[in-house]
């Protein structure tokens, strides 16, 4: 049971982690992230890297959709922009990989601003559909802009290198991706302690009154698109260094749906939600694979069922969370926090 959360300064009151248990949990979590690469096997490290990439991109989408209320089904396309930028720079300029990642984010942000322009005219579902349109147009460009994207055969990258060491092992990539993602998540959390984040939330809750209260919709809607696609671009860049081949089919439309599903399942408009959702949605298909492997002795054609079952479960998770737990996993965490807060005095 916890008592006495009175703060002595505004600074303490406005910190990211305000209670002792929160800080303890965070320290434990950070410690386990540091130990993980030494205890996990290659397969789990592969998954951890994938999770890091997806968390970065989902957090970006959460800023746009969860916090600013602008629904986008184009996150995968923005990732693709980042991935192609990184690939092109590596093949044509040979610039260092951190620079490439940042450039990938910036180019994706620029594209995001253009794609966000309709948000000044249309809202809600109409905007979602405009982003669908934009992502198909981008796909067309990836296929047809031969000189840059190499068409359907795509770009093949050499491993990223860090002070001369090529990063080929998942363990090495883990040490790059996880800190980058952690920084991006921290940035997102910081955003909502300032006027920028407040402006986003105000636009989500009621854009027309936000405007009268001094928030330029033009500026902040486009800014939200820019940040969100910057995150996607960096994530896409990491993706490119992870799989080392980028084709137009690397970032299909369902991948965009995946990110929207991730923030729904995790909890829209909370930083924790973006993280939980991305982790959960990345790991569930793997768990299904274990389930199917386990069934194979009993059901001979179980392996063929894996892909359809994944598709079905993906749909069921979206529908199920929306109907039964619309605030997502983050809300479940909050509930259990409140429960332990009062423990052992149950309500």
């Amino acid at each position: 049971m916890q008592i006495g959360t009175a703060k002595h300064s505004y600074q303490a009151d406005e910190a990211l982690l305000t209670t002792r248990p929160q800080r303890v949990w965070m320290a434990l979590f950070a410690a386990s992230l540091c130990i993980a690469p030494f205890v996990l096997d290659n397969y789990w490290l592969y998954l951890a890297c994938l999770v890091a990439i997806n968390v970065a991109s989902a957090t970006g989408l959460n800023i746009l959709t969860g916090y600013t209320g602008l629904v986008s089904l184009g996150q995968a396309a923005f990732m693709a922009v980042g991935a192609y930028t990184v690939g092109w720079m590596q093949l044509n300029l040979g610039t260092p990989f951190l620079l490439n990642l940042v450039a990938g984010g910036i180019i994706a942000a620029a594209v995001g601003i253009v794609v966000g322009i309709p948000s000044l005219r249309v809202k809600g579902l109409y905007l979602a559909i405009a982003t669908i349109a934009a992502s198909f147009i981008l796909h067309f460009i990836f296929v047809n802009w031969q000189s840059v994207t190499n068409g359907n055969s795509g770009l093949t990258l050499t491993p990223a290198s860090f002070f001369g060491t090529p990063l080929t092992e998942y363990q090495q990539l883990y040490f790059v991706f996880v800190p980058i993602t952690a920084l991006m998540v921290l940035g997102a959390a910081n955003l909502f302690r300032t006027r920028v984040g407040r402006a986003f939330i105000a636009i989500r809750d009621r854009d027309i009154s936000a405007e009268v209260l001094g928030i330029s919709l033009l500026r902040y809607k486009l800014m939200s698109f820019a940040i969100s696609s910057f995150y996607a671009g960096v994530a896409g860049g990491m993706w490119a260094y992870f799989f080392r081949v980028v084709t137009p089919e690397s970032f299909p439309f369902v991948y965009s749906i995946f990110f929207l599903a991730a923030i729904i399942v995790g909890g829209m408009g909370t930083i924790l939600g973006g993280i939980l959702g991305a982790v959960f949605m990345t790991l569930v298909p793997e768990l299904l694979r274990f389930g199917i492997d386990w069934l194979t002795p009993v059901l001979p054609n179980a392996a063929a069922m894996l892909s359809p079952v994944r598709t079905i479960v993906f749909g069921l998770l979206i529908v199920g969370f929306l109907i039964f737990e619309p605030k997502g996993l983050a809300e479940i965490v909050q509930r259990s926090r409140r429960y332990f807060h009062l423990w052992p005095f149950k309500k």
């Binding site: 940035g187 997102a188 910081n190 955003l191 302690r193 300032t194 006027r195 920028v196 984040g197 407040r198 402006a199 105000a202 209260l213 001094g214 928030i215 800014m223 940040i227």
Partner: peptide, 15 residues
């Protein structure tokens, strides 16, 4: 939020 128009924090500082 009301103070928004009188504040200066930009995007990078906010991050």
């Amino acid at each position: 939020l009301g103070r928004h128009a009188h504040m200066k924090t930009g995007l990078l500082q906010a991050l």
